[in-house]
Amino acid sequence: MKKQDKPFAFRGKYLLLTVLILYGVIFLVSSQSVQLALLKSGTILVKILPIFGVVILFTSLLNFFIRPKQIAKHLGQDSGTKGWLWALAAGVISHGPMYAWYSLLEDLRSHGMKDELIVVFFASRAIKIPLLPMMIGYFGLTFTILLSFYILLGALLQGLCMQLLQTKKM
C-alpha cells in the first residue's frame, strides 16, 4: 500500500498563541523583561538556524538515498545491536537543542525507527563533545570520564526500559 502524503498544516499554533499571550501579559507588568526575552529568543533563533538547515538537508538526503525499508532495517524492529550503537553515536554527535531534531526523528519514526532508539538518541545527547574541555576545566577529567561513561550506559538502559514498557503495552 502506498503511503499517502499528509496535507500541509501548521503544528503548534496553540502553543505559539499561548506564548504570545504570555508575552503580552508580562509586557503589561514589565515591558523591559519582554524586550530582553525577545532579544534572547532572537539570538537563539539565529544561532540554531544553521542547525535547522542541516536537519532539513539531512532529512532530504536520508529520504533520497535511503529507502524506508533500509531505515527500518537499520533502526527498526530487526536492527539488532547495530541500531542501538547507531542511535547512541548519533545522539553524541548531534548538535544544538533537542527540539531541533524532532522533525528528523519524526520522519525516521514514520519509516520504522523504534521508540527505544529515539530514547537512546535523546539520552546520549547529554554528552556534548565540543563542551568536554570546559567540563574538564570545571569538574575535572575523572569526573568527566565517569559521567560520560554512565551517560552512555544509562542511555542504553533507558532504551531497554522503553523496550520493556512498549512490550508490556502490546
Binding site: 503544528r11 505559539l16 506564548v19 526575552a37 532579544l39 534572547k40 529568543s41 533563533l45 527540539y99 524532532y102
Partner: peptide, 11 residues
C-alpha cells in the same frame, strides 16, 4: 509555530 513557541518560552 511549534519551534517558535518553544524558542519564545526559552527566551
Amino acid at each position: 509555530p511549534l519551534l517558535l513557541g518553544v524558542i519564545g518560552l526559552v527566551g
